[in-house]
Design a protein around this nucleic acid. Structure first.
Length: 491
DNA sequence: GCATGATCATGC
DNA sequence: GCATGATCATGC
């Protein structure tokens, strides 16, 4: 049977226009519109509603709206038009913010074949240079078939982004060529990442057949990072104008150096200056909470404390202040956890894992010298897979304590009146990478005998057994951060 | 000297 | 109202 397509599959605009007829429909509506017979329909619904059928949403649109059979070859979905179709979720947060629900997977990284050296001729480039983005709202109170499709957008990354993506691409294929695919991590790069693929991490390790057959590496795919997709969603899909200042003034800034070199160069051009000198130079007032961060952003040429590229790349600026003797007092905090969710999480799906593995830091290092702080330099840092695995052990130990029931007891101070509430979480030295600690304005506990400590329950977090404990956050150990700094920053 | 529980203070 | 950069106070 020859199927007549309802659009011109060699014309991107025609594909887009036909795609736009999806807007306002749910996945169920799409099936209905396709006139699928009832008995067949029930099977499709069951299959698509199964959360383990990850590609289900996309397959349904390809097959029942656009009317072509899915393929897993590396060409764009509409080869004659050079358009790739991506069906991808977005979410609306508690405060009304829109964010991408997932990273956008482009294509697998092959360990079987030689890498594609020429970026512009690569499958990655062909697939991401022109994409029809179909965004549906992932509202978890509904079944998958009830999710509404609300945006259809023909998207091409801007020139500057394509250049940064090229630099990311080179970085990834270089590691693969060196037989170091096992060292790949999504945090290594700026917009284009090497994300893990395959549900069970043990099973998804395969030999690096072409470049290092004796070494296994986790299966990975090229992807556009979730942070990047969130920016695209808000700027190009929803067309909101609340954009951030850009570090790049044009693509020329990164023609003869990489984006990373550009960033590091901008900071390092101020090497050896004191906080006082920088303060005067950039007219930043001392005493504010954002003082250190402001200095860093001004050195990058940004007037606010947000930069477009950093939002897209999920890069966080952290100023590190070393003591005169070279030690580091502060640890780095993460958002507080929610115990009820925490006890049910698997490491690789956990909030903390997602945060820690996808985040990259621009560490801007100062060292105290007398009453001043001297700029020692900066470093783009993200955690290695090995250290991530060590963090997992710490995380699991903490999780075990919550599962078994945290022990809480009062310890009175010498005055016999004041007390602190102690707990049996693993101590900081129990794990090289992370520890757990509170991070709130006040304390709040509800003990097993019903006694309440504190005034404001919003500082407490419910334990699985109904008691409440002061909200807790994961922290990267100060000693670990210090160990990760380049030697040149510590001298 | 440092870990740990706690809290201050700012700014989104 | 809350998250988070920053810092404190106690006690081992």
């Amino acid at each position: 049977m020859i199927k007549i397509l309802k659009y011109d599959d060699s014309n991107p605009l025609s594909i887009k226009e036909y795609g736009e007829t999806l807007i306002g429909k749910t996945f169920l509506d799409v099936l209905d519109a396709a006139g699928i017979e009832d008995d067949l329909k029930q099977g499709i619904i069951t299959k698509t509603n199964n959360p383990n059928y990850k590609g289900g949403m996309g397959h349904l649109i390809e097959e029942y709206h656009f009317g072509y059979k899915i393929n897993s070859d590396q060409e764009p979905d509409f080869p004659k038009a050079g358009v790739e179709l991506k069906v991808t979720p977005y979410e609306i947060g508690k405060k009304g913010g829109y964010s991408a629900g997932e990273r956008l997977v482009i294509t697998m990284i092959s360990y079987q074949d030689a890498v594609e050296e020429d970026y512009y001729a690569s499958h990655v480039y062909k697939k991401l240079v022109l994409t029809l983005l179909v965004h549906y709202l992932r509202d978890r109170t509904l079944t998958r078939m009830e999710y509404p499709i609300n945006f259809v957008t023909l998207f091409s990354p801007p020139e500057e982004d394509l250049k940064i993506i090229q630099q990311d691409y080179e970085k990834i294929i270089t590691k693969v060529k060196e037989g170091k695919a096992h060292e790949l991590s999504e945090g290594d790069t700026t917009y284009l990442g090497a994300c893990t693929k395959g549900s069970n991490s043990i099973k998804s390790y395969v030999p690096q057949a072409f470049y290092a057959p004796e070494l296994k590496a986790q299966k990975r795919a090229f992807c556009l990072k979730q942070s990047y997709m969130t920016y695209i969603l808000n700027t190009y899909v929803r067309k909101k104008v609340d954009t951030y200042e850009s570090i790049l003034s044009s693509v020329h800034d990164i023609e003869d150096k990489t984006f990373e070199e550009l960033i590091i160069g901008k900071i390092n051009s101020h090497l050896g200056k004191t906080d006082e000198q920088l303060m005067t130079e950039f007219d930043v007032l001392p005493g504010s909470k954002s003082f250190w961060s402001s200095l860093a952003y001004r050195m990058l040429g940004i007037k606010s404390n947000r930069a477009e590229e950093f939002e897209k790349a999920n890069i966080e600026v952290k100023t590190i202040r070393l003591e005169e003797n070279g030690t580091l007092k502060e640890s780095i905090s993460f958002p507080h956890l929610t115990f009820i969710e925490f006890v049910q999480e698997e490491w690789e799906e956990s909030d903390f894992y997602n945060d820690l593995s996808s985040k990259r830091y621009l560490l801007v290092v100062f060292q105290k010298q007398g009453s001043r702080n001297i700029l020692k330099g900066c470093q783009l840092w993200n955690i290695t897979n090995e250290d991530l695995d060590e963090a997992r052990i710490g995380w699991e130990m903490i999780q075990q304590v919550v599962v078994q029931g945290v022990k809480l007891w009062k310890k009175y101070k010498k005055n016999g009146i004041d007390f602190v509430v102690k707990n049996n979480f693993p101590k900081k030295e129990a794990n090289r990478i992370i520890h757990i600690r509170p991070h709130t304005s006040e304390r709040y506990y509800k003990l097993s005998d019903g006694e309440i400590i504190g005034n404001n329950p919003s500082y407490g977090d419910e334990l699985p057994d109904g008691r409440m404990m002061l909200k807790q956050s994961f922290w990267l150990n100060n000693t670990y951060i210090l160990s990760q700094l380049d030697d040149s920053l510590k001298r």
